[in-house]
Design a protein around this nucleic acid. Structure first.
Length: 386
DNA sequence: TCCACCGGGGTCTGCCATTACG
DNA sequence: CGTAATGGCAGACCCCGGTGGA
């Protein structure tokens, strides 16, 4: 998801700017003058507002600096950790080094989730082994810690982790599913067992109420379709389901079919986002002369359409319509909306150059892999009047 | 041999608020 | 009380290929 990545980058840029701003009154200085300052200011800590550094563990700060940790960032995130009398940054570092993590990665981990240095070696080893039950190589785990240190370190409850794995397995998730889940949504495994159970029970419940036949299969189905579901709140999922049911006036059987199909993939969207996308799609279709029934049919047959933001969706529709494709064709083959605007535009251009007639030949050609599309283009180029 | 149908796969953290705990 | 643990939130698509029927 390039868009997400871009937003992330913007966010973190913003964060680092605000961070610099909020610490603007502390001039950049070497570790030694920094420590000197701490010592000098310590005796005179009156009742005026003072930087939090006075009570911080000075030798800890020194260690962290040596490790290349961004202490400012750490202080911003979990200030309490820097005041602790005894921590395990050395042990953690050796441990992670032993697993193949670079200095830089380790520093990044501590900077972003300082509490990591409060975990004991025994704890770390045990947790690592539990993750290794799911991952084949230490390397994979290191890359996840690098990506999301919090997922691994946020809780110290290894028993809970063990129970989660057992619970997820009991739902029918196999080794491959667990691997995908832990790779994609590692936070799931740090949830309390109760929280995970709550979502699973919620799903079973809804499914049973709608008259589904095998409620015990349903959670596994939803999870493997939507790996993020367990790190969302039941409130969010419920609100989305209610919203879809109400605005499309779905019968139980229709809602059930939706949830059993690709509908599972849009359940975790934020409530506002789903609403906004729905509204925008509704408006656009109305302006194109579609009926309510068309909208309902589209969403039931291709729920993913609601995943697409208003701007992207409208651009895609514009491209397709101006390329000589009708709304009717799109409604019959909504999967064409799956492809990126860039992909669609590029293909439309290529096809136009060949004088491809969508009314005659349909639009299936747009829904194909790059390889297949190119193969088809090769053929069309060889015999253009086909 | 072709192509429509269909399902699967990648991908997602870092922060804040609240509650639990000592 | 301070810190630790935990829950929740915003953010916002794309692509590939097996397969069975024509």
């Amino acid at each position: 998801m390039a868009a997400v990545a871009a937003v992330r980058a913007l966010l973190s840029l913003h964060q680092s700017v605000t961070l610099q701003h909020s610490f603007g009154h502390i001039p950049a200085q070497s570790p030694s003058t920094f420590l000197l300052r701490v010592f000098c200011s310590a005796p005179i800590d009156g009742n005026e507002l003072k930087p939090p550094v006075d009570t911080e563990n000075v030798s800890l700060l020194e260690n962290l600096n040596l490790l290349g940790v961004d202490v400012k960032m750490a202080r911003l995130r979990q200030p309490g950790v820097l005041r602790k009398a005894s921590t395990n940054e050395q042990g953690l570092t050796r441990f992670l080094q032993g697993k193949g993590a670079s200095r830089k990665v380790i520093a990044g981990i501590i900077s972003r989730y300082p509490r990591a240095i409060t975990r004991s070696i025994d704890h770390l080893a045990q947790r690592w082994d539990l993750w290794r039950d799911i991952f084949q190589k230490d390397e994979e785990i290191v890359s996840i810690l690098d990506r999301s240190p919090e997922s691994f370190f946020r809780t110290s409850d290894n028993g809970n982790l063990k129970k989660n794995i057992a619970f997820l397995t009991s739902l029918g998730l196999n080794a491959k599913d667990l691997h995908r889940l832990l790779t994609t949504a590692p936070r799931t495994f740090s949830n309390s067992l109760a929280l995970n159970k709550q979502m699973v029970e919620f799903l079973e419940d809804i499914y049973a109420k709608l008259g589904g036949n095998n409620p015990e299969q349903f959670p596994r189905f939803v999870i493997s379709r939507n790996l993020y579901i367990l790190i969302r709140s039941t409130k969010r999922v419920k609100t989305n389901i209610d919203m879809l049911r109400a605005s499309l006036q779905l019968r139980d059987s229709e809602l059930l079919a939706l949830l059993e199909g690709s509908g599972a993939e849009i359940l975790d969207l934020s409530n506002e986002y789903l609403k906004r996308n729905f509204k925008s799609l509704n408006q656009r279709m109305a302006s194109l002369g579609c009926r309510k029934a068309d909208l309902k049919k589209l969403i039931l047959s291709y729920p993913i359409v609601l995943y697409i933001g208003p701007d992207t969706l409208n651009t895609k529709l514009d491209c397709l319509l101006s390329g000589g494709i009708t709304m009717k064709q799109i409604l019959e083959k909504p999967k064409v909306l799956d492809y990126s605007t860039q992909n669609i535009t590029g293909r439309l251009g290529e096809l136009q150059r060949l004088g491809y007639d969508f009314q005659k030949s349909g639009i299936n050609i747009l829904d194909s892999s790059r390889k297949r599309f190119d193969a088809k283009m090769g053929k069309l180029n060889a015999s253009p009047d086909d």
